[in-house]
């Protein structure tokens, strides 16, 4: 962050559960909620998405997406994960 700033920067998560998605999304928006890492108390306010959200998926080459994410997408609780990230993102007004 210190090097590149937060302008034109989007965070894309590949987290496997709703809980971890919310945790990492919150870290990118409000700072580390567990107060454990370097981002404790640092509110970056970055727009954050999960890699399986349509807004991200539609921008990827379909065959590359399928190769890299397809298998994981079959096993994840997508609605919960997308909902968790969206809640944090929209709570931030992004």
């Amino acid at each position: 962050m210190d090097k590149v700033g937060t302008e034109d920067l989007v965070v894309i998560l590949g987290t496997p559960t709703a809980e971890s998605s919310e945790l990492y999304a919150t870290t990118m928006v409000d700072g580390d909620p567990s107060w454990a890492g370097a981002l404790a108390g640092t509110a970056l306010g970055l727009p954050v998405f999960h890699v399986t959200e349509d807004a991200v998926k539609q921008q990827a080459d379909a065959s590359v997406y399928d190769e890299q994410v397809g298998v994981a997408e079959m096993v994840l609780e997508l609605d919960e994960i997308r909902g968790a990230v969206k809640k944090v993102r929209e709570g931030n007004g992004a």
């Binding site: 496997p16 559960t17 809980e19 971890s20 919310e22 945790l23 298998v71 994981a72 079959m74 096993v75």
Partner: peptide, 15 residues
């Protein structure tokens, strides 16, 4: 928030 690690592995093997 770390999920069910073995279950995720088994789902991935099934996938």
């Amino acid at each position: 928030g770390s999920g069910n690690v073995p279950e995720l592995n088994y789902k991935l093997i099934a996938a």
